[in-house]
Structures are given as C-alpha cells and as structure tokens.
Nucleic acid binder design. Structure first.
Length: 482
RNA sequence: GGCGCGUUCGUCUAGCGGCCAGGACGUGGCCCUCUCAAGGCCAAAACACGGGUUCGAUUCCCGUACGCGCUACCA
C-alpha cells in the first residue's frame, strides 16, 4: 500500500445551467489526476444557491460529462460510501457544523439585514474604504444573541476571522501563498435561509468525503485562506490545494458567454468530437512531457501531473480546436464518419438510400471536413446538377480552345467505360489525353467544371465514378451541342 | 480602492543559470497533384520594462507597467 492509494479528488459543479468549458477542464484534470494516482474521483453537486438553481441542470451536467468520456467512482447517480453527493441533501450536516463553531465562539450570529449590509458597502465605497462587513454583530453578547434568535429574528452565522496575523498555505501550482487576516471578511457560513455558503459546505464536504487534493480554478485562490482557517477551526487537516489557471476570452478576460460559446453542450451540438475537445482542453494549462500533442484519454491519464500545469491564463483558441477535430474525424473508421454525416445529408434533402454510394461520398470528402455538418456544402455536387452558364454552349475559356473537343470526347467515352469505376475512368482520361494531345488542366478543368460547376473538388475520376455514367452524360450534354 | 495571481512567437506552450530560445495551431512558400483538401518539407514570428545577484540571466531577487481574479446571505 503506497500513500497514493489514498488520493481522492472531486469535481463539484453548481447546477446553474450548462457545463462550462472551464468546468470541463477542471473536471478533466481531477479525473486524470485520480487515474494517474489510482485514486478516486468524486462528483458532487453544489446546489446551495436556491436563486440560481436550474431544474434539470444537474442531470444534464452528468450526461455531458459522460459524453466527454469522463466517469466517476462516487456521485449522485451511483452513490458511494460518503453520500449523499448533493449538498441540498446534506443541510443538517452543515447546520450542525455551523452550530458547533457557534458554540465554541469561533462563529457568531449576525442579525444585519441584506439591505443594511448593502448600505454599509455603498458608504464604504463612497469613502473609498475597502468594502468589508463592519463586524458590528461580532461583539454581541451571547445572551443578546440567544435572545434575539429566540425571538425569531433572522440571522446568518458568520465566521470569526482572526483580526491579526496571516495564513500561509501551499499551492501545488503556485507555491507558497500568504495572505494577511486583516483583509479577510467575517465570512457568512450559514445563510438566513438555513443553507450553507460555498465556503462552509465545501470545507465540510471535502473533509467528510476524505478529499485529499482540491484541484479547482484560480478564482478560488483568494478564498483558500478562509478555507484553511475553517479547517483549523474544525481541527481538521486541510487537503492539498492546486489552483488551475483561468481559461480566457480572446481579449484575455475570464472566459464567458458573449464572446463565443462556453457551453460544452454547444460544441457537442456543433458536432465537435469528445476526443478532440478533451485533447484540446487538456492542453490548455498543461503540457505533455514529450512533444506529442495528439493524446487519447488513456495517454493523458498516464502522463498527467500537476507540476506540468502552467500558471498563466490560456486563451481558448477555436482554430486549434477545429484542427484537432479535423484530425480526429479523419482518423475515425469510415462507418463512423458516415454515421456522423448522414443526419446532415438527410436534413439537406440529399438521397442517402444507397449506403455504398453514401459511404463513398463521405470517404471522398472526409479530407475537406472539420465538422460533420460541413459535408452538406461539400456534397452538393453529387446531388444537384450545377447551374448552367448563361449560354449552355459556353464553357470557361482555356488557352488552347479545345475544351469542347475534350468534353465531346469524354461524353463519347463515357459509354465505353466498363466497369464504371475510377480506374477505368482514369484510363479514359488518359486515352483522351493521347488522342487530343491535351493534358493537365486543359483536360481536367473543362470536365470538372461541366460536371460540378466548380474548379475545385475531389479527384475527377472519383467525382465521375460517384456521379455515374448517366448523370455524367446528362451534365455534359448541354456543353457539347452546337 | 484593497488583497492576490500572472507576463516566452498572433494563439497554446517547452525551458527549471551557459540553448542558433524548441514544438503545435494559424500564416507564407515549396513538394505531391487536373484543382481543392489532406499529407510532407521549409520559412517568418517571442523571452513586457528597469534595476540588481552572478563570470554569465528567459531562468534567481526587487521595483515598474500591463493583464486577470477575488473583495456577496453566488459559486
């Protein structure tokens, strides 16, 4: 038994809507850390804010995490030895701990109303003083406090933060952090509605669930002092901390809506592959020890370590994500690529009833796709004849002026190709080349344009093969009359 | 305002006192090729600034600037 077996980490999202891309990264690092150390990955739902709670969000969160390829050892859906894993089901535990601090004089009741506090803050702002609770209830006598509570006056329970001194803690990413107590507010632990705040619930649960390493976003770095102080007040050993650099918008502000998509669900809906998203997001703030960048979940789990996590925030660059997606898409077996493309083809009204033809089309176009939906535009040439030029006899001009002869030769040749497949079509093209002395662009481009209306596309024999001899003839004919 | 954290090519990053500062995306070029894409090769592109410490700083220390985060009965 090595100490490693005791590694327990958690991802603790709030069910306030969608899964944030930054949340996915945090979840991923926790998951990878657990796997790397043969530890346990816990999923916990932190739904202590009744105002921001969104019905069904928790379920969606779990589903999206699963889609991304993450799984957990303990959580709200599968249970575990330290459940329940939903904070709203653990209210009694938080109250009990808040009250024990109250009894020991490490916390106190605050009877100030939200309006009052707001007024205080505004005044402080005007006077250019740091906005902090003035601690007027901190000195209330126990008798007064008890009496007012008994009388039914609403109150919160605040943490009695030391007025002097400082707290020093170690962060696995940033090293030693020290913060003076003088700048720490007397944090509310239990709200007047009986729900805990993040700080209380988080500390109580991390201890109750035996969490060994807290790996979370950098926005939590400043509050870690409060947490450290709470662990101390409870007489518990604190976990190790690691604060991950933030994910940023292109303008370097914290990644948010307004400036692009931040919802994992949105990327999923757009057709991004989970493997690509995971690979991309893994590299935002962490780097592989060798120079490989294309890494599977298993490879990431084998390689991951906190000491290769960077300190600076990382801009979410959609272009690189797109590149990853293209790579992963192309690496998929054909059947899988077809499966992903078919819904888009059908939505566009294209006939996919011939599975062989559909598969060949997808295969021919795969190098052009970043997202499966891109197939719609690319595949148009196979399902719709190009619009004819103003005059059907008009073919774009070429240097030798032989294009009509080329088209006629090809049209005539179409009937002689047996079987109709790319190799034979290639032979026909070569024959025409020999007969007319026309080659390269002058040979291919007129045919390509007559057939597809475009100057770019997959190899011409492949295009012709997929079109079939009849359709080729039909598309060619208007250009060969006169 | 206070406190904290951060700063290497446009972007993601490697670097842990001595390197022509490396890789990837993107960009440009070349190759392949009927074209496009894919793929291969090549190129341009960075240590925020100022002081120290040191024989020697991208690297260690201090300061400045800039950026970000936190400062809620939100997480």
């Amino acid at each position: 038994m090595t100490p490693e077996t005791s590694v327990r980490v958690r991802f603790a999202p709030s069910p306030t809507g969608f899964l944030h891309i930054g949340g996915l990264r945090t979840a991923l690092y926790n998951y990878l850390f657990a796997r790397r150390h043969h530890g346990v990955f816990v999923l916990r739902i932190e739904d202590t804010d009744r105002n921001r709670f969104v019905e069904g969000a928790a379920e969606k969160l779990l589903e999206t995490l699963h889609w991304a390829g993450l799984s957990w050892d303990e959580g709200p859906d599968i249970g575990g030895p330290y459940g329940p894993y939903v904070q709203s089901e653990r209210l009694a535990l938080y109250r009990q701990h808040a009250e024990s601090l109250l009894r020991e004089g490490k916390a106190y009741r605050c009877f100030c109303s939200p309006e009052e506090l707001d007024r205080q803050r505004r005044k402080q702002a005007e006077e250019k003083r740091p906005p902090m609770y003035d601690r007027r209830c901190r000195t209330l006598s126990r008798e007064t406090s008890d009496a007012r509570a008994k009388a039914g006056e609403p109150f919160t329970i605040r943490f009695r933060v030391p007025l002097t001194g400082e707290t020093v803690f170690h962060d696995a990413v940033r090293g030693e952090i020290r913060i003076s107590h003088a700048v720490i507010d007397d944090q509310v632990l239990l709200k007047s509605d009986g729900y805990p705040t993040y700080h209380l619930a988080n500390v109580v649960d991390d201890h109750a669930m035996r969490i060994s390493d807290v790996i979370r976003g950098e926005e939590w770095l400043p509050s870690t002092v409060k947490h450290t102080l709470l662990y101390e007040a409870f007489g518990w050993p604190p976990p190790r901390f690691a604060h991950l650099p933030l994910l940023l918008n292109p303008d370097r502000s914290k990644l948010s809506k307004r400036q692009g998509d931040v919802a994992v669900e949105e990327y999923r809906a757009q057709g991004f592959l989970p493997e690509a998203l995971i690979n991309f997001v893994a590299l935002l703030g962490w780097s592989s020890p060798d120079e490989r960048e294309i890494l599977s979940m298993d490879e990431l789990a084998a390689l991951f370590s906190l000491d290769r996590v960077g300190k600076a925030g990382a801009i979410f660059d959609i272009e690189k994500l797109r590149w990853f997606n293209g790579r992963y898409f192309r690496a998929l077996p054909l059947e899988e690529r077809v499966r992903l493309c078919i819904p888009h083809l059908e939505r566009a009204g294209y006939d996919t009833r011939d599975p062989i033809r559909t598969a060949r089309i997808v295969d021919a176009l795969s190098n052009h796709l970043v997202l499966p939906a891109d197939i719609v535009e690319e595949a148009a040439i196979f399902f719709r004849a190009p619009a004819l030029p103003a005059s059907a006899t008009e073919v774009p001009p070429f240097s030798q002026g032989q294009e009509k002869a080329v088209l006629r030769a090809f049209l005539t040749g179409v009937r002689t190709v047996v079987p109709w497949e790319r190799g034979q079509i290639k032979k026909l093209l070569e024959r025409i080349q020999g007969e007319l002395g026309v080659r390269g662009k002058e040979l291919y481009l007129p045919i390509r344009i007559a057939l597809t209306g475009k100057s770019h596309g997959p190899e011409l024999p492949v295009v012709a093969e997929l079109l079939g001899p009849e359709e080729c003839s039909r598309r060619l004919e208007p250009f060969t009359v006169g």
